[in-house]
Amino acid sequence: MIAGGVAALAVSAALVLSAFQKNLVFFFTPTQVAANEAPQGRTFRIGGLVAPGSVKRRSDGVTVQFVVTDTAQNIPVVYQGILPDLFREGKGVVTQGRLGPDGVFQASEVLAKHDENYMPPEAADALKQAHGNGLNAAQKTLVVPGSGR
């Protein structure tokens, strides 16, 4: 009985793991999208940095457009809705939606992806001055593990 239990559990563990590998590619980078690695014709997520200076609110007041970049490729995004508190230019973002034929990503959800650095504002300012524009530090957010998969 115990041997049977082990076998059943091992099989279910293997299933969970393969589900992980297949379905839990949480987001695609702009470079992957440009290389057509992202799924066509259905919703998916893209992740990257909000390109500095790219955030514009259209005249209707609810539509926001911005550019998601991984510094190699850029994808323009259009979104109507509420942005999270940590949505900032130069910071990480993960957005879900559909890639239109015009190459513009129609977002239905925008999430902020913050980095693992915790520090007081004064320290962050000092770091920013040392780095120039803060993009270098923020790029850490973007490092995509196992992207050579």
Partner: peptide, 27 residues
């Protein structure tokens, strides 16, 4: 038996932010 089989999940949790794209930030 269940506890021992489930141990594989612990390194998966710990390294998930390194192995996959996640919304959760790194360590």
């Amino acid at each position: 038996v269940l506890a021992l089989v489930g141990v594989v999940n612990v390194p998966i949790i710990y390294f998930s932010v390194k192995w996959w794209n996640t919304l959760h930030q790194g360590a």
